[in-house]
Design a protein around this nucleic acid. Sequence first.
RNA 1: GGGGGAUUGGGGUAGCCUGGCAUCCUACCAGCUUUGGGAGCUGGUGACCUGAGUUCGAAUCUCAGAUCCCCCA
Length: 494
Amino acid sequence: MATGLLSTREFNVSKREKFSEWYNTVIYAADLVDSRYNVQGFLVHKPWATRLIRGLYSLFEPELEKDGHEPVVFPTVIPKENFELEKEHVAGFVPQVFWVTRGGEEEFARPLALRPTSETAFYQMFALWIRSPADLPLKLYQSCSVFRYEHETLPFLRGREFLWIETHDVFATEKEARAQLLIDSAIATRVLTEKLGIPLMAFLRPQWDRFPGGLETVAYDVLMPDGKINQVGSTHILGQNFTKAFGVKWTGGDGKEQFPWSTCFGPGIWRMAGALVSVHGDDKGLILPLPVAPVQVVIVPILKSEEKRKEVLDYCLNLQGHLRTHGLRAKVDDSNKSPGFKYNYWELKGVPLRIEVGEREVAQNKITIVRRDTREKLVAESAHAFKHVEEIGAKILDSLRAKAEAELKERITTSATDKRQVKAALDSKGGFVRVAFCSIAMDGEPCASELQEFTQGGKVRGHLLNKKEKPDASEKCVVCGKKAHEIAYVAKQY
RNA sequence: GGGGGAUUGGGGUAGCCUGGCAUCCUACCAGCUUUGGGAGCUGGUGACCUGAGUUCGAAUCUCAGAUCCCCCA
């Protein structure tokens, strides 16, 4: 199996038939990562992946700032005693924590945790910063990596170090905290569907699957091509649990101390990169939507006769300048490779649009534009290059989204009425199975466990956040057969 | 958490059973010729995961470790 830099020729695997092999090959072939660093779960991100990930950050950060969040940078380490203040939180996270136990030759009396998430760092400071109603709401975010001791790791999908954003918001009232949950889910949905063409499902998770220390969790699920689910982010209503544990309080006009409500939102940038690669890619390599493509347009000169060589190259450079003036990331590939090699190379990298320029185009002031997804060609006036690129870029995104939405719809099974049918659906096509379920409060947990065991991994993902679905009075829980109170979705996950 | 497989130039591999000169493709470097779907010729650089053991001799056999992949919970 590939571990490092592959020759581009070696990428020749069917995504449909062997997804996991395809995934493992394409991330090396497209030169996204290099796993030869040899610490399990820690990944070297090469320039193409780094630019891609920066692109993802640059889609989320402005959305968060528009909503009133400000950026901060917090320490990577969290003292053990902080970490243990919130009891449920520590119980949930301790099995996954990396500890720093010594400095130089000295053992620390109190070990430092490498943050698996930063609530316990932020709330220590919130206790100092929050005094009065004027300090609220406080909405902060940081773009960073966090550390979790995972047993199985997969590039971009599960790492011992992974990249994300975490917001930490504090509000005077429960009402504001609940409103923030809807804002977060709207941001996640907007970025994923509108900018990346990836449909997502937002679920209120069952009580037994909520964030350790929180009250309620909403998580954002994306369907992967092998039928398993990639949770690309989540928002948690923490109630007053953390503010009480850390003594975060404010005093109003009545002189009474009050504990504020808080929320946090974790857009999983790493997992989104994994989703982008997987959902849109094909047997030729990546297909990147225009908003995040590190190179949006590659210009390939076709140099035939020696005397026209400079003319063709100048034409390409002018075109590159024209597109860059309009804010596009355009690049002339004037390397010494053959045109065919360049076509395959940039297709593997996922560049959404290619412009070919040879003597024919130069003579007529034309360009030939080729779409990455369909490989359709269009000959157009060079003077209108920007307009065409913008239009075709938008069409590519629309068509990637439509394809992904159709795939998702096709993989939601709605007919299962007992656990055998749930298992059959998960075994045959994966995806989501929509079922009547007794309850997603704690009393539904035995049914969920039984179902997970019976289906070998099918988890109750919860009920849809944005669509009110309730079972009919006659409907029975797909597991226990008692009265169903929920319409829930079941899926296997990464 | 359980099981299985793998590790040989930068990448992919042959060789391992039966111990003895390490194979091929690709990439890379130099030069010349080339450019509308993965160019050609000539020359060149470059490897047996780590440690211990068995042996005259280990890529090959034994033990331990590291890393990667796959399957199942």
